[in-house]
Design a protein around this nucleic acid. Structure first.
Lengths: 237, 237
DNA sequence: AAGTGGTCTAGACCACAAC
DNA sequence: TTGTGGTCTAGACCACTTT
């Protein structure tokens, strides 16, 4: 799925640098090549390299020290409520068994709304999966997910009962930014049935968009039965 | 307080532009001078002006459209999920009028559960208030709050229709830490009536404990009608 | 002194929107 | 066609840190 849109040069440099970091080739505090070296490597002007490095610094991925060099920044701690957590890891951390049942997985054409959320062209292909997560035998989460094919072209080939969609996407397109929307909603019939919920019980709904390298990777809507889930977070001023 | 540090030129441009916006000289959607005009005005290169405009765009203050122009962006829509926000300020920032109706205010004896939440002795006195917040004429929040008298002894003497409980407590005992729990719940009858909610509609419920100087100041439970509120938050890795 | 990043210039070519 | 913003170049000068 090669995009025909030519990437700006500074974006190519950014992508390369993020790749080196996310693939573990450059650990935390590793010293990056100097601007001069990157200019030679990419055959671009120093302003272009500088912009790539400056933006990554603004995004918290790098630390720059005048007269010293550029270094890989330690990952930022985030508040619990905002953590992008792996449901599988969370369930297992409670000593229970996580299981996932895939209801559907297919490519569809993006609706206008979805195209807007994923920042792609309307009618362009989008991967769509629906699955249910179980903690031991209890259904605890209904997951409906749309994935930008440009970010994860092999998404539909995965076995999500082996590795969750979240874990797979984290591996192929590590997120750099995210946006949450939290709501209370009554579940549609299909969701209520999949979660074995009594009629009239509300769900806590989390919608999340995740970015990687400036592109939206995935848009996901998670439904939690109200009586089986709540979000907890701590913070300090 | 003259700083001896010479500001970078792009920063001077940014400061000027933000000033125009914050002083209300350039309202939302106002069209800014073009890059060319700012170049002439500040006698700097276009790259410098471009950097100022690009950074303000990244910061959400401006919107740029290729071939069209640069415009003042509307202020951020929703509250950050984890910010301790003032409901009054939030409503007013949307250009609406905030009003608060106090339903009750009294001192009671702490139940075991409440004593645990506030970290005080059971049966010791606790201040308890119930109020409803309105955005223009619509009820948007039901607030039930318990306050540690040790942290705010004059809490019950306040006129909360003048200054919200949150604002008052922030003034007398600025919070240093907090804890949130977010849930989806069906409202009890009293809450549903106060919020004029149709039967069966769920609420988004936020419970929050706030610390100041190591002591729990207040425990509050906020009920939001699901169809009139959602929480939004952004983060980066 | 040498190497690093921080900023800035005066042009350039391009894509896009409006006229 | 004109004007807008998006990107890029090939230099430059500076402040700072290390050697």
């Amino acid at each position: 799925m090669p995009t025909n849109i030519p990437q700006p040069l500074y974006q190519k440099v950014k992508t390369y640098l993020i790749g080196q970091i996310d693939q573990g080739l450059w650990p935390v505090n590793h010293r990056l090549p100097s601007e001069h070296e990157l200019v030679a490597q990419f055959q671009v002007s120093r302003m272009t390299v500088n912009r790539a490095l400056r933006e990554l610094t603004d995004e918290g991925r790098l630390i720059r020290l005048q007269g010293v060099g550029t270094f890989v920044a330690p990952p930022k701690a985030q508040s619990a409520l905002f953590e992008i957590h792996s449901i599988a890891a969370e369930v297992e951390s409670r000593g229970h068994r996580h299981r996932c049942r895939v209801l559907s997985g297919e490519a569809t054409a993006a609706t206008a709304e979805l195209a807007d959320a994923l920042d792609i062209a309307p009618q362009s292909p989008v991967f769509h999966t629906r699955m249910v997560h179980y903690e031991d035998e209890a259904a605890i989460q209904y997951e409906e997910r749309w994935v930008n094919p440009a970010a994860a072209p092999h998404y539909l080939d995965q076995d999500f009962e082996r590795q969750t969609a979240h874990d797979y996407l984290s591996a192929v397109a590590p997120f750099s930014e995210g946006e949450h929307v939290v709501e209370a909603l009554l579940p549609p019939k299909a969701v209520a049935e999949a979660l074995s919920m009594p009629k009239g019980e509300p769900c806590l709904v989390i919608q999340r968009r995740t970015w990687s390298g400036g592109k939206v990777v995935t848009f996901v809507r998670l439904w939690f039965p109200a009586d089986r889930y709540r979000l907890v977070g701590r913070f300090s001023a």
